[in-house]
Amino acid sequence: MMSMDYLFTITIPMLEGAKMTILLFLIAVIASIPLGFVITLMVKSAIKPVAWLANFYIYIMRGTPLLLQLLLFCFGLPMLPLIGEYLVLDRFVAACLAFILNYAAYFAEIFRGGLLAIDKGQYEAAQVLGFSRWQTMRKIIIPQMFRVALPAVSNESITLVKDTALLYAVAVPELLHFAQTAVNRDFTIIPFFVAGIIYLLMTLILTWVFKQLERRLKFE
C-alpha cells in the first residue's frame, strides 16, 4: 500500500530536479528565440555567403540528434586537440549551450515560415509611406511574423520541456534523474508516474501561457 509519506519523500527530490529542468528550459527559450531570429535574418540576407552559412548551420543542427550534440558539448569538446583543455565546461553550462544552439535552428525555420506568410503588399505599403528597412522590420513585419509563428513556437517550446530529460544522459541531476534513482532504490514504478505528472503540469502551464498570448495578439 502506497502511503502519502512515501509519495512525499520521492516527490521532494523530484521537484528539486524539476528546478534544474525549468532553469534549462528558461535559459534555452530565452536565448534560442532571439538567436533563431538572427539566423532567420541571415538566411534572408542578400549577402550570399551569410545565407549559405546560416543554411549550413540549420542543416547541421537539425540533421543530427540533439543527444549527439549534447554529448559532444559535455564530453567531446575537452577532447579536441590544443583547444580542448580550455573547453572543459560545467556540464550544465555545456548542456545549455547545446540546447540553445540546437533550438535556435528550429526557431529560425519557424520564423522563416512566419516571414513567408507576410504579404508583399505590407513591404510596399511601408515603402511608400517612407519607412526605412529597419523600421519596416521592427514596426510592421516582426510583429506580424511573431503572431503567425506563435502556434509553432508554442509547439516547439513544449518539445523543449520534454527534451530537457536528455540531461539524464550527461548525469545532470534533473527531474527524470531523481525519478530513476527512486525507481531503482525502491523497486516501484510510482516515481515514473509522479515524474510524468510533473512534466504534464509544466506543459499545461506552458500551453496556457501561449494560449493567453495568442488571444492577446488576435488583432480583432
Binding site: 503588399g121 505599403a125 511608400v128
Partner: peptide, 12 residues
Amino acid sequence: GMVFQHFNLFPH
C-alpha cells in the same frame, strides 16, 4: 501617397 488595390493595411 499611394493607395493599393488590396488596401495593404497593417493588420496588427
